[in-house]
């Protein structure tokens, strides 16, 4: 129903390394806009990445609808990778269809 990683993604910000921001540009493979926070899955440099987004209410307020953030679309995500080296990042902002959405 959703990616295996989805339910694991509930953790504090301290587990992401803000000193090493990365940018991922790739097509969205899976997307889940839900609570406690949304996520997208995409492939970056041969690895499957999970991009952790904001809670649904904030996503809505900032215009990140399911129509905008949809599978198949090109997504740019700027954010911070997990300190433990797993291919997961917390997005500071994402950009789809030329629309930038700040998630903090």
């Amino acid at each position: 129903m959703f990616a295996p990683g989805f339910a694991e993604a509930h953790h504090g910000w301290g587990s992401y390394d803000a000193t090493k921001p990365i940018t991922i540009i790739a097509a969205i493979e899976e997307v889940s806009l839900g609570n406690p926070h949304g996520m997208v899955m995409l492939t970056h440099e041969g690895r499957k990445w999970e991009v952790t987004l904001a809670p649904l209410s904030r996503m809505r307020v900032r215009g990140a609808t399911a129509e905008l953030v949809a599978a198949g679309k090109q997504l740019t995500a700027y954010g911070y990778p997990k300190r433990d080296g797993t291919s997961e990042m917390r997005a500071e902002w994402i950009e789809v269809d030329g629309k930038r959405i700040e998630l903090r």
């Binding site: 129903m1 889940s32 806009l33 839900g34 609570n35 406690p36 809670p55 649904l56 209410s57 809505r60």
Partner: peptide, 12 residues
Amino acid sequence: AAFVRNSTFVYP
């Protein structure tokens, strides 16, 4: 549970 995840307001 899907309703809780997908509703904007229920979870908060």
